Simulated assay, not measured.
Amino acid sequence: MKYSSSTPPAPPEWMKVRLKFATEAPTTAADVREKVTGSGLHTVCEEASCPNLGHCWSRGTATFLVMGDRCTRRCGFCDISTARPLPLDPTEPLRLAETVRSMKLRHVVITSVDRDELPDCGSTHFAACITETKRLNPETSVEVLMPDFKAKPESLQRIFDAAPHIINHNIETVPSLYREICPQSNYAHSLEVLRRSAEAGFMAKTGLILGLGETIDEVKEVIADARTAGVKLLTIGQYLQPTSDHAPLKAYIAPETFEELKSFALKQGFVYVEAGPLVRSSYHAGDALDFLLQADGKPADLTEKT
C-alpha cells in the first residue's frame, strides 16, 4: 500500500530522547552485536529499527527474529522488509538456543516475521525454536511475540505444546485502521489468538502503538476487548514513522495520555501495564515476569506452564 506524503509533526520535548549505550552495564551493546552477528541470527531490534536498541543491547538483552528477515505481510507501521521469503533454516532453533546460552540471558523474547506462504504459517518451526531454547536454557524464561498464524487452532496448539512462559501477540491498532495500516491482518483473528492463549492457561500479553489517527475512545475499546479475551499484560507506545514510504505519523501522544490509558487498563483488570512514548512490546520484557513472580503467590496460569 502506498501512503500519501505529508510533513510529520515536529517532535515535542518529551520525544527528544538521546539514546545511548549504558557504559556501566556489565554486557555492552557491542558484545551483544558480536554474538548475534556470529550466530547468523536476526533481531527485531535491528530489523524493525527499534528506538530502544542501544538501551536494551547495553543491558545484554535482545529480541530474536526467527524464520528469516522477509515478511509476507506489508504493515504500514513496520520497517521489516516485505519480500518473497527464503526457505526456513532447520539449524536455526539450535543456533538460537546456543546463542541465548552464550549470552546468559535470564529472559528471552522470540518473535518472527509472518510466513503466510507456508501451510502451517511457520508454527512448527517457531515451536521448535521455543523447545530448543528451553532445553538448553532451563533457567531462562521464554516469551514469544508471535504472529496470528491465521488463528488456525492446530498452529496455535503447536505453540501451546512448546509451553513458553508468556505468549504475546500484538493487536497493534484500532479496528477502524486495520484496512489502512495492516490490511492482511484481522482484528478478530488477533483477539481469537489471545483468547485461546489465555484459555490454554498462558499469561497472555498484547501491545498497541498510538499516533496513527486513532481516537482515545477507540483505544479504550480495544483495551476492554483485550481484557475480555483474557489478556493480563499490556504495552502501549508511540508510533514512529520509519520512512516516508510508511504510514504517516498523525500525532505525538502526550505522556499524560499514556498515564490515563495505563490507569484505565489497570482498572479493567490488567495486572501489568507499560505505557509511554518509547515503550515497545519487548522493552523491559523481563520486568513483567519479575513483577508477577514477586507478587504474593506465583500466578497459576504462569507456573503451570513452566
Rank of each mutant, 00 (worst) to 15 (best):
S5L: 14
C45I: 05
C45M: 01
E13H: 14
S197Q: 05
I216W: 10
L136R: 15
I171Q: 09
S197W: 04
F21G: 03
A300K: 13
I216P: 05
V17Q: 07
E98W: 03
L145K: 02
R280C: 11
C129E: 05
T306C: 04
T91A: 13
I167V: 15
D116E: 10
T37K: 14
G230P: 02
T63Q: 08
P153Y: 06
P255C: 05
R135Q: 11
F264H: 15
E117R: 01
P175I: 12
F21A: 13
Q241H: 08
S102C: 01
L191D: 07
R280E: 11
L96F: 08
T72Y: 04
E34T: 15
E180D: 14
Y252P: 09
P11H: 02
F270E: 10
Y187K: 01
D120R: 00
G40S: 06
P90V: 14
F264S: 05
E46F: 02
L234V: 11
A247E: 04
S5G: 11
G297F: 01
D225K: 06
S6R: 14
G76M: 09
A295N: 12
D287M: 05
S4L: 13
G68V: 03
P299Q: 11
E24H: 14
P277E: 11
K267M: 08
A226R: 01
A251L: 02
T215Y: 01
L53D: 10
K20Q: 12
A188Q: 13
N137E: 13
L210Q: 03
V44R: 05
D161T: 15
N137C: 04
M146L: 14
P12Y: 08
K232G: 10
G122M: 05
S155I: 00
D89K: 05
T7S: 06
P183N: 07
H246G: 09
H165Y: 05
V231E: 08
L136P: 14
N168I: 05
A251G: 06
E221P: 00
K262H: 08
R115M: 03
R33W: 04
L145W: 07
A265N: 03
G60H: 10
H42N: 13
Y252G: 06
D296C: 04
S282P: 04
L96G: 05
A254Y: 04
Y187M: 06
A30R: 14
T37H: 12
T99I: 03
H169K: 04
R74W: 07
A151Y: 06
D69P: 02
Q294Y: 08
P119C: 01
F291I: 00
T72D: 11
L233P: 02
E24T: 15
R74C: 02
L194W: 07
V271R: 04
K134C: 02
